[in-house]
């Protein structure tokens, strides 16, 4: 997994799994890159093969960090699996899903 700052975006690529086993570390890693000028988190979801409720909890946590500063969490190219999971839990209402 790679996390890097690109202009005013924090970009995440190569994330294959977001679950109870790595959700805490994932949140900490994102927090390290957030700044006042950098409040949009863009996650490439194409490689994600597994996402559980703890992984979703981490995404919601990041969402709560950035939205007070006009930021957002953008999930790019979510697989059918991820999209179905978000819809099942109505979380597609708070994340921006990008094709």
């Amino acid at each position: 997994m790679n996390v890097f700052v690109d202009n005013d975006h924090v970009r995440v690529t190569g994330l294959e799994r977001l679950s109870a086993g790595n959700s805490v570390e994932f949140k900490q890693l994102i927090k390290l890159h957030l700044t006042a000028a950098c409040r949009v988190v863009e996650i490439d979801c194409a490689p994600i093969r597994f996402l559980d409720s703890d992984g979703l909890g981490a995404l919601i946590c990041i969402h709560k960090w950035v939205t007070p500063h006009d930021g957002k969490v953008r999930l790019q190219q979510p697989s059918e699996l991820v999209r179905q999971l978000l819809e099942r839990l109505h979380l597609d209402e708070i994340f921006e899903l990008a094709p």
């Binding site: 409720s53 979703l56 909890g57 919601i60 709560k64 839990l89 109505h90 209402e93 708070i94």
Partner: peptide, 14 residues
Amino acid sequence: LPDIESESGRGLFL
């Protein structure tokens, strides 16, 4: 389901 911004509480629902 819990409140949409809750970070936990979705396991049993799933």
